[in-house]
């Protein structure tokens, strides 16, 4: 199997030093300089990457635990240990029906986000495809992005009262305008040549909008959604602070009323874990929806 490189070097060696047998033998392996731990744009293996990620997470919990131990005994209930928080979460699940609250929060996030997508995807797509629709809508949507979602809370309370709808509406408002702007960017980034080559194939306008522009931008659109649903999770507690009886945010607010810091931190931890799972589910969806992204040379 080593024939090819060897025969190449033989003829060259023959020319130079015909009788030197050494030159005909395979050269020893070359040892490049060891890659520095912080080599610029260095490589990281799959398992090394997983290991380093675990180290980061563990470091966070260790720091938390150290902070807990260093807190004076009579103050420790304001900074419970990792174990206390985890066992509190377990207690909430087993004794307090926490699963219903978690389910309610997940439901709120996904339903509101579904409607945000239902609004933002066609709007971003049409704005990206039609200059006049863009001129009509973009200044408004661009401006609405600057309104803090939290400022809608009183308004929504007046309009809808302490209903589920008010919470869904807040979560919707929190991400819909940013999502629209991101999707517009995704659609505008579709290469001009892709559109033009479809035109020279005789494709109709609608074919190009849905079958070329949308199809081409779809992986990036999913990425935008993944980033914006993360923002949605950050609004969850705000949505559930006021006049909520259920949901993770409501549980946390009840905890706050009785200075149960372990419950508050348990809520934070739950939202963190759910956020990571959401992110993962979007990545997995992308993996299966866009197999061609993986098929790279």
């Amino acid at each position: 199997m080593n024939d090819a490189p060897l025969s190449g070097s033989v003829s060259r060696a023959d020319l130079l030093v015909a009788d030197d047998e050494n030159l005909k033998a395979e050269a020893p392996l070359f040892k490049p300089p060891r890659e520095q731990f912080l080599g610029l744009r260095g490589s990281v293996g799959r398992y090394q990457s997983m290991f380093l990620g675990m180290v980061g997470i563990i470091a966070l919990f260790v720091a938390w635990e150290i902070a807990h131990v260093m807190t004076p005994e009579n103050q420790q209930k304001f900074l419970p240990s990792v174990g206390q928080v985890v066992s509190k979460i377990a207690y909430l699940f087993t004794e307090k029906g926490y699963i219903a609250d978690v389910a309610k929060s997940v439901y709120r996030i996904y339903v509101s986000f579904f409607f945000a997508c239902l609004f933002a995807v066609p709007l971003g797509l049409f704005m990206g495809c039609f200059a006049k629709i863009r001129a009509l809508i973009n200044p408004t949507v661009g401006g609405l992005r600057y309104l803090p979602a939290a400022s809608f809370v009183p308004l929504l309370l007046v309009y809808f009262g302490p209903t589920d709808f008010a919470k869904l509406a807040l979560l919707f408002l929190g991400c819909v305008f940013f999502l629209t702007a991101l999707i517009l960017d995704n659609v505008e980034a579709v290469p001009k040549e892709l559109i033009e080559s479809a035109q020279t194939m005789g494709a109709s306008r609608w074919h190009i909008v849905f079958r070329v522009a949308f199809r081409s931008a779809a992986p990036q659109i999913l990425d935008s959604m993944r980033n914006m649903i993360a923002v949605s999770w950050t609004y969850l507690v705000i949505a559930e602070i006021v006049a909520a009886t259920d949901g993770i945010g409501a549980v946390m607010m009840r905890g706050a009323r009785f200075l149960h810091v372990d419950i508050i931190m348990g809520g934070i931890l739950t939202i963190g874990v759910l956020g990571v799972l959401t992110d993962l589910s979007f990545r997995i969806a992308g993996h299966f929806l866009f197999p061609y992204i993986r098929a790279r040379r």
Partner: peptide
């Protein structure tokens, strides 16, 4: 009066649909 399939075009940029 516009592009059409009777005038096929090949561009310098890669225009295969990746999906």
């Amino acid at each position: 009066m516009g592009p059409g399939p009777e005038r096929g075009m090949v561009f310098q940029a890669y225009t295969s649909f990746p999906w």
